[in-house]
């Protein structure tokens, strides 16, 4: 982008003026609605992460993703878009895959969370981790923890008979086809484009020839 000659703002000034515009634009709403609490609200949260109990005191605004990364220092789970569109933050909570960026830690009080660190270790990889390595199911690796957590849960969902958009017959057991895996993994974006190798890896773990 070419800078406008008359606008010689620093990045900081530009950000400040942008913030002011936003503040003016939403003034009506701010006045119409009750003020937020003057100070942040803290809450005690206990989580069982990868089999270990943790007691935390968190700002109520803390997402599960930020609790995992910033407070428990489990940085395997990645922050991509932080709005539920990319799937990099996928973890398994009480046996189900979710976007950890779109739930508050305080809402997960007492939950059992499995992150990529809990699936396997470098010495003892989870079969899905090993298959991703074998099939080159990644390039930069940023989406990979989310892809793997998602893939592990997808196989459970198929086993449990959860239908998908591409299931031909709603009343039959879902198939383990490439089309099914692609559809079920659509909430995990890979900008390097490792999709076909990811499908191969999942297919191998599912016990079907790739």
């Amino acid at each position: 982008m070419t800078p406008h000659p008359d606008l010689n703002l620093s990045r900081r000034e530009l950000l400040l003026s942008g913030a002011a515009t936003v503040a003016c634009g939403t003034l009506d709403v701010a006045q119409a609605q009750p003020a937020a609490p003057a100070s942040p609200t803290l809450a005690k949260v206990s989580l069982k992460v990868n089999g270990r109990e943790h007691g935390l005191e968190l700002d109520t605004r803390t997402t599960l993703l930020d609790a995992l990364r910033e407070h428990l220092h489990l940085t395997g789970t990645k922050k991509g878009c932080d709005q539920g569109q990319c799937g990099a933050c996928t973890v398994i909570v009480n046996g189900r895959r979710i976007n950890s960026c779109l739930t508050l830690a305080v809402m997960q009080q007492g939950a059992s969370v499995t992150t990529i660190e809990g699936l396997g270790t470098p010495q003892a990889l989870h079969p899905m981790q090993a298959a991703f390595v074998r099939h080159d199911g990644y390039q930069c690796g940023y989406c990979t923890p989310g892809q793997i957590c998602s893939a592990v849960a997808v196989l459970d969902e198929i086993k449990a008979g959860v239908p998908s958009h591409v299931s031909a017959d709603l009343n039959a057991a879902p198939q383990l086809s490439a089309a099914e895996l692609r559809e079920r993994m659509s909430g995990n974006i890979c900008r390097c484009g490792a999709y076909s190798n990811i499908v191969d890896a999942i297919t191998e773990v599912a016990g079907k020839p790739a």
Binding site: G87, L102, H165, L170
Partner: peptide, 23 residues
């Protein structure tokens, strides 16, 4: 729902992603 209200099941799985539908 799958047997008697297929249109509902189909509409649900046409929306969002697996992770979002779980929540």
């Amino acid at each position: 729902v799958r047997r008697d209200y297929g249109v509902l099941s189909r509409a649900l799985v046409a929306g969002a992603s697996g992770q979002l539908r779980n929540m």
